[in-house]
Design a protein around this nucleic acid. Structure first.
Lengths: 246, 246
DNA sequence: ACACCAAGCAGCAAT
DNA sequence: ATTGCTGTTTGGTGT
């Protein structure tokens, strides 16, 4: 059975070696920085990674209840006969104190992982699809640029319609909301000013749009085109149909 | 030394008991759902919580590289002589397969935590502060409602200035950006329509504002007031001064 | 470094 | 369930 001093030594050594540390414990937590927070006694998982990022997880929920960003310094001390993990990030002016009542288990070890995740089906993939297949927007639409992130905002697809009118397309992977419409409006207005023209078309390309957003869109003379993002659920549906056959 | 079948049994039993499970392993991951993702072999921490949420953490970074939401079903099987954790969420049409090459360590146990975190220093706290101390906006400003979430959008603070003009205040905890200005503009326009009046003032209350956002704000005749969110860094500064004294 | 924006955003409240 | 919006948002890209 390890005592408090053993745990303090274990943890501080593991930190020095940049190991990945997992502590299951009963603790309370105080955070101060961009906001202030307090969390009373309970069982949690405390994880410290090789880059000195720290996360505290309660037994339910996807997100950490408390965390510190990478490059935080951590130090385990004994204070008032309890283990106290002091985490300090001077650069971000954040600090956290975890007072540990009891350790359920402790593990630390070097993890090696050089791989990066590859994701597809993002909004950018959707813009690519429309650029490659402009007829999905409407007949005669010709894209002139894609992911124009510099001059007039971050326009997903910019093009010219069959009548030669400049057209801005804003893509959304999901249901377009009010924010999407105001975003589109901003791009259209900027383009009108910078090009010195009085009419620019605006199109929202998304699988669907909320009623309020559609009303605002129509009020401003913009249009909506229903487009599904590429690869969306494709793999799942393939798998499902295979399961169904079985 | 446990073999694959032992681990499969261990995990499936732990899942049945709704324990919190931590697996350190070398694995690769395939996800399909709202997007598609692929992550090749590497060392990671896999966590499954009592509510059947799952997270996969690489050895660096705050965020999980892959995850499944609560209420996902998990099942460990042996396939092609390897451990395979199949996670399925039929309701969300998401699935994940984690192929495990080697388990470094495994732990599971019941965690008990009934406490909720208490946070202060949020945007809502900022709105409260302005409601209680309207002179922080300007002399003669009188708030009439706070967090008006129903009638005209989600206005942080609504009030009347010294000349009796209706005024919308949009709070931001940090630097206000273009999105904050378009948000404010939406509220002002909605109010003008719904109240049938031609002039409504708009104010952004934030510690600072980006140049572009300030230009757009001015162009639209709105104003900026520099306000810091309450309690921001207060506790840290207190601590720091104590440390400095020491 | 700052500005701007997407995210498998998440989580929350109100409709 | 959908809509709208905050977040200790995070993370990426371009200027």
């Amino acid at each position: 059975m390890l005592d408090q001093k053993d745990y303090a030594t274990l943890l501080n050594d593991a930190l020095r070696r940049n190991e990945t540390i997992v502590i299951s414990c009963n603790c309370n937590i105080r955070y101060s920085g961009r906001a202030e927070s307090l969390l009373k006694d309970g069982d949690r998982l405390v994880i410290i990674k090789a880059d000195n990022a720290l996360m505290v997880h309660q037994p339910t929920g996807n997100n950490p209840v408390n965390y510190m960003k990478p490059n935080t310094s951590h130090n385990m001390v004994i204070e008032n006969e309890k283990l106290l993990l002091k985490s300090r990030n001077l650069a971000l002016k954040e600090n956290m104190d975890i007072t540990i009542n009891r350790i359920h288990f402790f593990n630390s070890q070097k993890l090696i992982d050089g791989k990066s995740i590859v994701i597809s089906g993002t909004e950018s993939d959707m813009a690519n699809m429309l650029y490659e297949n402009p007829e999905m927007i409407e007949k005669g639409f010709k894209p002139v640029s894609q992911e124009e992130q510099t001059k007039y905002g971050f326009i997903d697809v910019l093009g010219v319609d069959s009548s030669g009118m400049l057209t801005v397309i804003e893509c959304k992977r999901y249901c377009a909301d009010l924010g999407a419409v105001t975003q589109l409006r901003r791009y259209v207005e900027r383009l009108m000013v910078s090009k010195g023209i009085t009419k620019v078309r605006g199109i929202i390309a998304a699988p669907k749009i909320t009623p309020n957003a559609f009303k605002m869109l129509s009020d401003w003379g913009y249009t909506f085109v229903s487009i599904k993002p590429p690869k969306y659920l494709e793999d799942f549906n393939k798998k499902q149909s295979r399961l169904d056959n079985f």
